[in-house]
């Protein structure tokens, strides 16, 4: 067991919690935009866990293992690409249907629902 006061462990645990919070938002929130934000929080948590592993791998005069660090940089860029594509799809969905969710519309013409 490693000590919690060690930054690597502390931020690693923070990453684990962020994965949980992000995943919860993605599953539970009905709004698609919020799900995209949740997906980004989930990704940030996974990157932080990589960061914890990188920090622990310090050696050879470096303060961290450069391989996981480089993988996180690549990951951030790929996550941004995915976000941009998802957001464009959401925008198109809204233009076509006037709604920003995949939940079925409320059954009895609630005010504001467009059926």
């Amino acid at each position: 067991m490693s000590s919690i006061s060690n930054p690597a462990t502390l931020f690693g645990l923070c990453g684990a919690a962020l994965v949980g919070i992000g995943l919860f938002t993605v599953i539970v929130h009905p709004g698609l935009l919020r799900r995209i934000v949740g997906f980004n929080i989930l990704g940030a948590g996974i990157f932080l866990i990589f960061g914890a592993v990188a920090r622990r791998g310090a050696g050879a005069g470096f303060e961290g293992d450069p391989v996981p660090q480089a993988m996180v940089i690549t990951g951030i860029v790929v996550a941004f690409s995915a976000t941009a594509l998802a957001v464009a799809m959401l925008q198109r969905l809204f233009d076509l249907t006037g709604r920003a969710t995949l939940e079925p519309p409320a059954p009895e013409g609630r005010p504001g629902s467009e059926t």
């Binding site: 791998g57 050696g59 005069g61 293992d65």
Partner: peptide, 16 residues
């Protein structure tokens, strides 16, 4: 995370 291997595996020497 609390049970990561010790000593940690690292590519830092290879990179250096």
């Amino acid at each position: 995370i609390l049970n990561l291997p010790s000593p940690p595996p690292t590519q830092a020497p290879a990179a250096a």
